[in-house]
Design a protein around this nucleic acid. Structure first.
Lengths: 419, 419
DNA sequence: CCATTTAATTCAACCACTGAACAAATAGCG
DNA sequence: CGCTATTTGTTCAGTGGTTGAATTAAATGG
């Protein structure tokens, strides 16, 4: 069994860097048309797609025929139309075609979900447990059981799982090794090997590995790209126990030379500040990490589970607790300083507060905006938006599943060839 | 005369986002083959190109025929071969085809140069003068005279100018307006309008404007990408009077949502540090800007021209001047702190010291590496390289000219259609 | 001098898109 | 109710560009 491990989701750019044969022509147009169907606000007709893409109606018909045959697209009920003419048959992404399996291992929960082509979450299941004392092999074993449940749920709904993606709160290298997941206590964990005993996740479908491992913050950012306020460039900050960021540039996740981009938690806020366990001093995590906020809020000993702490903080802040308000203000200032650097560097216009920061956005936002206003050179010409993420704690798992279906939409040929 | 102004060089991605007709097929393969010829270390044969790209030899021959007819490629002398078989005819980029005109306006000089398809600098001319007291219209007038000289030189060598690019040390928006060039004293200067009286620069060749305006740091980074140590992702820091950075990700310049990326000079090193004229506090420019280094080195009153100051500092440092050494060390530490943030964020493996920093690299490098070692989370697994730029002060102008020819190589159809 | 080897060209076949004509399905109007 | 206008979708000959195999070209080596 030749298992090829690919780490980290890569949405193939529709255009191959290599030779362009005539088959590529159809390949590119399949991707083009399917992409438009996916992006359209309402089911488009073949004629509308032709007008939109510049292809002829004849070609669009041929392409759509392929997509329908491959169960990627179905015809919607003819919708009430105004004006004369033969009524259009609307095209929608199939609700019973391929789907993506999204998995997540985090500090205090496991999650699995199934997302269909249209991006709808068709199954979702969370298993709460503190995973720090659990061995990696054990944790992954539990995850496989969750995945089996999800697979059964997908089958029951007529969906075909086309791949899976796993989000981990740490650095993942390009052979599937989790180099370091500090808050989980993992170091050099070979996820592929540990999962190798579980066949459902280790198949290779047409050259694409059945499972892809990626950083959790990256996947959360992807979910915001697809489910959230849509296209553009933005920074998605995940405030979990650690602080991670996903960088979306021009509708694509930027991963860096080795896939380790977005390690925002250890950007120095005050280079001479208190030492951080990373070895540096005055890192952002020392000011805006969950533990630091809790300590500053006087809740250090409260021993709250990591996933309820943000809501507890929001509750107290809403009630006007001065210590908590001050702690959040300080965290917001630190975040603002860091984010200003990022914006000066990358010229982004949007910052999304995700993970644990989402419920705290009302209190983090004002000090962040104040710092940005002061420190970002171009703020005068174009304002920067800071907003909470639309998806909550489930973002990473949903983003993982979404990355699977987005890969199909970006390169439908791979799926069609599988049949 | 319909002059379309496009600001900022954009290398077209060979694959159009729109419809893919059969003509696109040839278009893509022209770009593919020409790109391989440009990237090859020695003149490749048609057969080698076929093997490399996956196209058939028949197709490669047809494509090459088009390229030769369009004066983009010529056949090199048959080189001595080993082994049996018909000798290959090597293909090289034409030395008498299209060329790019590169222009630069900086604080104390103007520059123009001509670069051919192969990236060779075929003409170069610098005009030294302090341009701060000169009006923008006047400065651009002088630049046009320099450009005319360059055009004559290109003609004399049988080159055809296919476009021009202008580098400016400031923020350029997408209609050609220089929003702010602080060290030049420019604000809201409409470069296109001021150049409109000079026909040679305002033609539109086949939909592509004859002149493109861009930030100088971006163009310097591009020159490093093409002339320097080649492909990859890196941060190019230009230490002129201000500090700018060009970000190259996956062999492409990243420009940001509005083209204002790389404003690294105002990233805070110490958020409570001395106030900066940008309105923030403790910005990098306050520690590693040319004026700050000179002040720390005790040369504040020396009134050195901006372009000789770095060499003077290098001279003194080489002679062991303790004050200068200390000043450079402090600047290096500040640069190291900032660069660490950038690397944590973007996961780059290379930092290039360009502009005025290039001659100072021997002294800046050690403290930078020390900070990176300490603050970059992933430094343990993969080392970060810090090196001086290969091109000196001429980098921006050469990069500008190079961007013109790179655009032709990336999409040769535009040039071929022009005939 | 001829077999071997590699390079490049020629040519019929084929694939996918184009453009125009045609069929289908509706609304509006007398 | 029937006719026209209108828009959607399909059919089909035509075309551009690639493929693959055969052919020609130009060298080496025994």
């Amino acid at each position: 069994m030749a298992v090829m491990w690919q780490c980290q989701e890569v949405i193939p750019t529709a255009a191959p860097a290599g030779a362009v044969r005539q088959g590529s022509l159809r390949e590119l147009n399949l991707a083009l048309v399917l992409g438009r169907i996916a992006a359209a606000p309402r089911p488009p007709s073949r004629a509308a797609l032709a007008a939109e893409t510049g292809l002829t109606r004849a070609t669009v018909s041929a392409v759509v025929e392929d997509l329908v045959a491959g169960r990627l697209v179905t015809e919607a009920e003819p919708q009430p139309r105004s004006g004369a003419g033969r009524p259009a048959r609307g095209l929608v992404l199939a609700g019973d075609g391929p789907a993506g399996l999204g998995l997540e291992v985090n500090v205090d929960y496991l999650a699995a979900c199934v997302v269909d082509l249209a991006g709808e979450v068709r199954h979702h299941c969370v298993h709460r447990a503190d995973l720090r004392p659990v061995s990696p092999a054990d944790a992954l074993g539990r995850l496989v059981r969750l995945a089996a449940e999800a697979r059964a749920a997908a089958d029951a709904q007529g969906l075909i799982l086309a791949g899976a993606a796993l989000g981990v709160p740490g650095l993942v290298d390009d052979v599937g090794l989790v180099r370091l997941a500090p808050n989980l206590g993992w170091r050099d964990v070979p996820v592929p090997e540990l999962l190798a005993e579980h066949p459902p996740l280790t198949e290779v479908i047409d050259g694409v590995p059945a499972l892809v491992v990626d950083n959790e913050a990256n996947l959360a950012a992807l979910s915001e790209l697809h489910a959230g306020a849509g296209p553009g460039s933005f920074l998605h900050i995940s405030g979990e126990v650690g602080i991670g960021a996903g960088i979306v540039l021009d509708n694509a996740l930027y991963r860096g030379a080795r896939g380790w981009s977005g390690e925002i938690g250890h950007i120095p806020v005050r280079p001479d500040g208190p030492p951080c366990r990373c070895g540096g001093r005055g890192c952002l995590e020392r000011y805006a990490g969950q533990e630091s906020i809790l300590a500053a809020a006087g809740l250090a000993g409260a021993d709250l589970p990591a996933d309820t702490a943000p809501n507890r903080l929001a509750e107290l802040a809403g009630a006007g607790d001065a210590t908590v308000l001050h702690a959040l203000h300080e965290a917001g200032v630190a975040l603002g300083v860091t984010v200003s650097s990022v914006i000066n560097l990358l010229d982004l216009d949007t910052v999304v507060l995700g993970g644990g920061y989402a419920p705290l956005a009302p209190w983090l936002r004002p000090p962040m905006l104040a710092e940005i206003e002061r420190r970002v050179l171009t703020a005068a010409w174009s304002p920067v938006t800071v907003r909470p993420a639309v998806l909550g704690a489930t973002a990473a798992a949903v983003g993982a599943a979404g990355s699977v279906v987005r890969r199909i939409i970006a390169r439908p040929v791979a799926w069609l060839a599988r049949l």
